[in-house]
Simulated assay, not measured.
Amino acid sequence: MKTRLTCPCGEMMKGADEDELVTLVQKHLAENHPDHDYSRDEILFMAY
């Protein structure tokens, strides 16, 4: 299970599970990088 992702901007996000991680990353993208929109699969591909 992948629960962590570090954005190229330096923000590190950690979720309790993959669902929470995807939610956190999508929120981060909406607030900080509105021109980037990634699917669940794309986020989990980049996660570790």
Rank of each mutant, 00 (worst) to 15 (best):
Met1Thr: 11
Met1Lys: 13
Met1Val: 05
Met1Tyr: 14
Lys2His: 11
Thr3Met: 07
Thr3Ile: 15
Thr3Gln: 10
Arg4Gln: 15
Arg4Asn: 08
Arg4Gly: 12
Arg4Thr: 12
Arg4Ser: 13
Arg4Tyr: 13
Leu5Met: 13
Leu5Glu: 05
Thr6Asn: 05
Thr6Trp: 01
Thr6Ile: 13
Thr6Asp: 06
Cys7Met: 12
Pro8Thr: 01
Pro8Met: 12
Pro8Trp: 00
Pro8Cys: 05
Cys9Pro: 04
Cys9Met: 14
Cys9Ala: 09
Cys9Tyr: 05
Gly10Trp: 01
Gly10Lys: 02
Gly10Glu: 11
Glu11Pro: 00
Met12His: 14
Met12Tyr: 07
Met13Lys: 12
Lys14Tyr: 02
Lys14Gly: 12
Gly15Gln: 04
Gly15Ile: 09
Gly15Trp: 02
Gly15His: 07
Ala16Thr: 15
Ala16Lys: 15
Ala16Tyr: 11
Asp17His: 14
Asp17Gln: 12
Asp17Ser: 07
Asp17Tyr: 03
Asp17Phe: 06
Glu18Tyr: 03
Asp19His: 09
Asp19Asn: 15
Asp19Cys: 12
Leu21Asp: 01
Leu21Val: 09
Leu21Gly: 03
Leu21Ile: 09
Leu21Glu: 01
Thr23Glu: 12
Thr23Asn: 05
Leu24Glu: 05
Leu24Met: 11
Leu24Ala: 06
Leu24Lys: 11
Val25Gln: 00
Val25Arg: 00
Gln26Trp: 00
Gln26Asn: 04
Gln26Met: 05
Lys27Ala: 01
His28Pro: 01
Leu29Trp: 01
Leu29Val: 03
Leu29Met: 11
Ala30Tyr: 03
Ala30Asp: 07
Ala30Cys: 10
Glu31Thr: 00
Glu31Cys: 01
Asn32Tyr: 01
Asn32Gly: 02
Asn32Ile: 00
Asn32Thr: 04
Pro34Met: 12
Pro34Asn: 09
Pro34Gln: 10
Asp35Tyr: 08
Asp35Val: 04
Asp35Gln: 12
Asp35Ile: 07
Asp35Gly: 15
Asp35Pro: 07
His36Trp: 06
His36Asp: 14
Asp37Trp: 02
Tyr38Pro: 08
Tyr38Gln: 09
Tyr38Lys: 10
Tyr38Cys: 07
Ser39His: 10
Ser39Trp: 09
Ser39Thr: 14
Ser39Asn: 11
Arg40Lys: 15
Arg40Gly: 07
Arg40Val: 06
Asp41Ser: 09
Asp41Cys: 11
Asp41Ala: 14
Glu42Ser: 07
Glu42Trp: 02
Ile43Gln: 04
Ile43Phe: 10
Ile43Thr: 03
Leu44Asp: 07
Leu44Gly: 00
Leu44Pro: 04
Leu44Ser: 04
Phe45Lys: 11
Met46Ile: 06
Met46Pro: 09
Ala47Phe: 15
Ala47Gly: 12
Tyr48Ser: 14
Tyr48Met: 14
Tyr48His: 13
Tyr48Cys: 15
